[in-house]
Design a binder for these strands. Sequence first.
DNA 1: ATTTTCTTGTGAAATATATCACAACAATAT
DNA 2: ATATTGTTGTGATATATTTCACAAGAAAAT
Lengths: 210, 210
Amino acid sequence: MNKKIPQPTVIRFCSIYQLLCNLEKEGVKKVSSAELEEKTGVPSHTIRKDISFIGEVGNTGSGYEVAKLKQHILNNLGLNRERKACIVGLGRLGSGIIQWPLLAEGEFRIVAGFDSNINTVETIKTSISVFPSHEIADVVKRMGIELGIIAVPPARAQEVADRLMEAGVKGIVNFAPAIIKSRRDDCFIRNMDIGGELRILSAMMGMRSQ
Amino acid sequence: MNKKIPQPTVIRFCSIYQLLCNLEKEGVKKVSSAELEEKTGVPSHTIRKDISFIGEVGNTGSGYEVAKLKQHILNNLGLNRERKACIVGLGRLGSGIIQWPLLAEGEFRIVAGFDSNINTVETIKTSISVFPSHEIADVVKRMGIELGIIAVPPARAQEVADRLMEAGVKGIVNFAPAIIKSRRDDCFIRNMDIGGELRILSAMMGMRSQ
DNA sequence: ATTTTCTTGTGAAATATATCACAACAATAT
DNA sequence: ATATTGTTGTGATATATTTCACAAGAAAAT
């Protein structure tokens, strides 16, 4: 236990964490690896193996306490500290993302939004501050923003990413349909390309077997 | 070559495909595996190995023809046929997704939108037909829709997914922050959880090494 | 024409990940 | 008390994926 957590395990944890939050909200106190399999599709032995990387947390015979497991994941993944995020591109998608219920309390907070043309920004009900894109460097540094979300057209995506990294952002989620590459090894990027996901599904459908 | 394409390879292809489209638009005719590494961060030998699964396509000494490689990926992944998609949940995020430039010509077409309360649907500039959610089964069957995009609140996500699968949808992209499970082995699901992605980034940042 | 420089494609080796199988133990039922 | 059932944690094994290393061939340079 507690050696080096494999990447696939980290990714599964981050997704199972959400499930645990939802279970907690429903008042569920305990859960077994078999129940987690039922709810996620991830085999129970894989889940147990995953959990074994962060130490012994379960109770032989009666499964895991939801709250305890949740906290354990948080601690071991270094998620027990709120991080500030910003979003670049406040068109329809960008403003939709802001209001999407994604900000688990205490985990993340979107504190700034940027757009090249601040006048055409969609009316936003949330109360984040909006700045013109050329102020990215200043604002990111000043506010201590660590995460960036990109929702600009593909042609501008890499340029925006470079500017964010330059300003010190350490993680980027990119929605633009363009592959974005990290030019620094201290910044990680997750590409969320809707078209790409649809393609993956189509390919899987065509191959008829997971 | 041409045996069974590994899943990670399929996923990389689907993302590299986007890059090839963009390169083609820029008028680039040829590209080498080293250049693809430069643009994607995927090592060149991995790219070459990937391509080897779909046959010999490159020219020793001078790399790959962009158009030819693109077409080859399309053919081998079974993407050379337009598939119809629908979207459930037309709030800000849902309507933002519709207008996002994701629909490569000839690949996908979003032909229907659903919302539980058709009156509160955001004004949409696109010309897709909008239906109340209880008509999902009818419309999906009638129009021959194969793909679904879910952008409803987390509590309703699994229920919507079940209804889509029931109606015959074979692939689902889920944006709701809730893990959705396929109850049929002929339907594939891709969860796109923004909160989860931010968590993955935070965890990677905390571990300081990919 | 010949050499040098690129580049692909791919078996083989190395690494990483997933699966299995079961001992150990708690909870529950008898 | 004892048996039965349920559940975790984990070495060992199997499988999958990535990386390496280099032969083979094209293009460019001399």
